[in-house]
Design a protein around this nucleic acid. Structure first.
Lengths: 123, 123, 123, 123
DNA sequence: GTGGTCTAGACCACA
DNA sequence: GTGGTCTAGACCACC
């Protein structure tokens, strides 16, 4: 378990935001539950607390997280918001895949092959 | 064709490289054919010529494009290289999709829905 | 009366102090009268008793409130002090308004409009 | 001309945002014009460039400013947006004044006095 | 203990 | 030159 693996070509704080959203969507953090403190989470992911604070602040701006002064940050209690995020993540994965593959001018057979690959990998 | 749409959060020259590769893979630029000059392509895509030059340089470094002094830049004549690029793009699209969706903890049914969406969109 | 509405971006205890002063100025709490206990007031305003205790302490430091051991906290009996507070609050409201509006470079007509708005709202 | 005067009880970056908006509203920065660079403005106002960058980022998030990579930040070209800001600033000054004064339970005469004070000061 | 803000200084990609 | 990001370390108010 390394400190964490970040893509050096994308802002770390954005990757953290994505990670926290995914964890919430998977139920690792349940609705309304307290997130680790900025400092703890920063230690866990091996980043500077400032960077983590920025990620938390952005999540709060989006309404995905709320903060109680002196108590910490919490995942939204709004299950719909989390469900919506889940759908959004799934749909944007679909959209990106379709866009990328659509530009390659593949034959029907080639596309079928790709879909078979995906099915295998996802089960 | 509009000046072009770039994601302002990712390096433009990388997006250009991707675009030129995709055009080659689709046969818009056939193997060995001459690419538009840096200046023309920059104008077409609404980009600073410096940025375009950097994209061409990178494509040349990868061997995907070669330059004949005084004549301009050309797509590689190596059809295998282009085919390999096509496969690589397709496979990396698959890999990314699988990675993204795998992190969402979806049910088998939800996954099937996504695959259906993709199939529809790609035909 | 709802738990109370506080601006989460400003110290709560300061907002409480302001609220208690305003109540005194309006005569909700008359000079020399007993204030609700820290605990009761905290419950009324939906606030941590620590926070309320801090507000009371600050009000006492300013001489706006005094405490009799074992009996509780009381609004000052000094009517002048309360009148002075009233004038001070009114004058600082005027000063702030003038400062804010003065920076906007409004026309005489626009200013007149604002004054008309105020007059309407205050009657 | 001191480096600048900030209220130590409010976040500097918020005060900077307000200052830049007011300048735009007054026409000090006209629509579409380039703002001083983050570094220059930071020097002018005597704050750390990071703090200024945060203010600029926030202004961009609000759509009040836009940024061209490598070229700098610019006031929105949307005159309506600037006019709307002007109205918003004036109206919120009115609203605050009305709220503050309304809680003091003043007599009609006292209110008239305050309005006279304001009128004097603003002309 | 918590998050919020600020400074300082550094590096980077982009134009 | 521009803005964007990150680290480091500090201080603060609030709970």
């Amino acid at each position: 378990m390394p400190p964490y693996e970040f893509d050096p070509n994308a802002p770390i704080y954005l990757q953290i935001i994505g990670e926290i959203k995914k964890r919430s969507v998977r139920g690792v953090y349940s609705p309304g539950s307290k997130l680790p403190s900025v400092r703890d989470m920063a230690r866990e992911m091996g980043v500077n607390p400032n960077t983590m604070a920025r990620a938390y602040a952005e999540l709060e701006r989006e309404g995905f997280v709320f903060t109680r002064r002196g108590q910490g940050s919490f995942v939204t209690e709004n299950r719909r918001k989390i469900e919506a995020e889940k759908r959004k993540l799934a749909q944007s994965a679909v959209a990106r895949f379709v866009a990328e593959v659509g530009e390659l001018d593949l034959s029907g057979e080639q596309i079928a092959d790709l879909l078979r690959d995906i099915e295998e990998d996802l089960t």
